[in-house]
Amino acid sequence: MNIFRLLGDICHLVAIIVLLLKIWKTRSCAGISGKSQILFALVYTTRYVDLFFTYVSLYNSVMKVIFLASSYATLYLIYVKFKATYDFNHDTFRIEFLLIPCVILSLLITHDYSPVELLWTFSIYLEAVAILPQLFMVSKTGEAETITSHYLFALGAYRALYIVNWIYRYYTESFIDGIAVVAGIIQTILYADFFYLYITKVLKGKDFKLPA
């Protein structure tokens, strides 16, 4: 564990909590893509099946359980409890266009053809693109609530911090995982536009609105 990975995990945790609190406090999931949340639940489910097979540390197991539980809690809030507020008209991204390529890619480029490894690889590829339905929704409506933009910033910052962690681990432990690194860089690049607008607008107290 190093400071970059710890900060990354904290950002990830903050993002999830911010999203849950936003929905709970406002009693509404307006502006949130349920499809992205389905993809994230799938990411955690396929990546953390190793909870049953390998033990890394108490920290590792507890975080995995939190990510799994919170992702299903988020889905419950969106699709059951506050379903009436779900903005399905704007959540029109076709997730099969992400799922199918991720399945194919994980069969083509993987470290090992064991079921757990294939699920892990799939989860890494899917995580890289899971935010696209949410970004598509923001681009469709042209705006995001300030709290939603905080959520997106924390979620994007998490993988950016992981990249720094991988650079650090490469030099200190000679550790490198090509699949995670390439997917993580792509994932972070997808947030680049958003980061720019977040820093130039939201942090200066303005609303998150896309340029016309």
């Binding site: 995990d9 490894e117 995670a180």
Partner: peptide, 10 residues
């Protein structure tokens, strides 16, 4: 041959 990376990250 690449060693399978340890899965200690989240």
């Amino acid at each position: 041959h690449e060693n399978k990376a340890p899965k200690d990250e989240l």
